[in-house]
Design a protein around this nucleic acid. Structure first.
Lengths: 249, 249
DNA sequence: GCATGATTTGCAATTTAATGCCATTTTTTT
DNA sequence: AAAAAAATGGCATTAAATTGCAAATCATGC
């Protein structure tokens, strides 16, 4: 196998997953990690990806958390995404907020399923490009560099003009009494607008985030219709949500 | 077997597989690897493929943009992008249409330059994410899967609400008398709206596209302010544009 | 037909590049 | 602070490139 092929492969993996692990690449390509490291170093020097400790990430899609940890919670997010899939039916209009869990969901949407999909998230839009039967409508606005979604008046304005069947609301913090909270004020505004534009609100949320709280409130826990976690339905952490008319998945 | 035949065969293999191994070719053609090496060297010198350690790959083998399309005539586009850079000044508000030439331009924008940048192009937005001082505003709308830009009423609407200093209008076809033309009607609408929102219209355009024509008209050649090509200013192809009050770069 | 010169091809010696391995240092995680 | 994972730099091994050279092939003009 040519060096160029290998590098192309790595680049391709990065394009698809937004990140790669050195060890995975070494495994898949049957070369030593040193070689992959050298390849990634070259690709980094030629600005085709960004080298990070343990692997590489695609340019622009900055992974602020270390890559190893990310992979770990990725499994939970994958599980949540699988569950979320069961809520989606052919022909529906859905709205995907940002966040890596929703990105996992977007990745899993079958190419053959006819859907209309609104999103303010750049990585999700990129992911949806490859799904031939999904019509993607991007919510325009000012791009926030760290969350990689559009925010601001123009985006909220565009949201105010739509009504979708289901909104998958990437959730950073959820608390039985305090509800859904966020660190960033502008994102709060976006999420409020999203809830307002949706008939049904689904909150995919990994268990670590249950019970946590941040500065600004988006809505009460009772305002969401479905809570999806990677936990089994009888888990203690979910107890507090059981008499709230929330469907637990 | 003639040398010509052999080289044609190699070229064909490259076209089909995007790569060839030196040893495979030597085997298939029953000649020594030295011969194949010499053939590949010749083909490389005449720009028909790219020679690499151990074989050859097709031209443009690793010219991928962030979303995964190959960029052809990268060199020319890079040159145009460099020229275009000279038109941009700190603090300006610019509008970048889609197209790979503009993508090259976006790639070159210095991270430290303060700019506000509107774009309906997904790859360009991704590229701009990593530029810390550039505020990016994404024009929302329906995403066209092949051009990877947003189109449709919503996008045009958003464009109608802005006014920028310079618009870099990726150009598919330009003709001295027929003006700028496009194949896709929806993109025509977008480009018309972009022109309308801009004080100054710049058309970066590789020389192959000069003189060509497509189905729908965007605007007359005289409606653009600057034409940037990779050619020298005295090139014959540019003659027709010289008495049109267009700045040539 | 065949001698001549140019081109093409294969071979061998040498140089260069790619890869893997390992000891050491740095970074990350616990 | 200790342990684990990853990065770095040096070195050895192997594969490939380069160069020079000689043999083979070819076109040509006589």
């Amino acid at each position: 196998m040519l060096k160029e092929e290998r590098q192309q492969f790595i680049l391709n993996e990065v394009r698809i997953h937004n990140k790669v692990l050195l060890t995975d690449m070494a495994d898949l390509l049957n070369v030593s990690v040193d070689t992959v490291r050298r390849d990634i170093k070259e690709l980094d020097r030629s600005d085709q990806l960004k080298k990070v400790h343990g692997g590489a990430v695609s340019l622009g899609f900055n992974n602020y958390n270390p890559i190893g940890k990310k992979i770990y919670s990725l499994e939970k997010k994958a599980l949540i995404a699988e569950k979320a899939m069961s809520l989606i039916k052919e022909g529906q209009i859905i709205l995907l907020s940002g966040g890596t869990t929703n990105l996992e969901l977007a990745r899993r949407l079958p190419s053959k399923m006819k859907l209309t999909c609104f999103t303010p998230s750049l990585p999700i839009a990129v992911q949806l490009l490859s799904k031939t039967n999904i019509e993607t409508i991007f919510i325009g606005g000012r791009l926030s560099k760290d969350s990689q979604i559009t925010i601001g008046g123009s985006a909220i304005n565009m949201l105010s003009e739509i009504k979708v069947d289901i909104c998958f609301l990437g959730t950073n913090s959820i608390h039985p009494t305090e509800g859904l909270t966020e660190f960033d004020w502008e994102i709060v505004q976006m999420k409020k607008a999203m809830i307002h534009s949706s008939r049904k609100v689904v909150s995919p949320c990994i268990s670590e985030k249950i019970g946590s709280m941040q500065r600004y409130k988006i809505c009460g826990a009772e305002d969401i219709d479905v809570l999806i976690t990677e936990l089994e339905p009888w888990d203690a952490k979910l107890e507090a949500f059981k008499n709230m008319n929330i469907q637990l998945l």
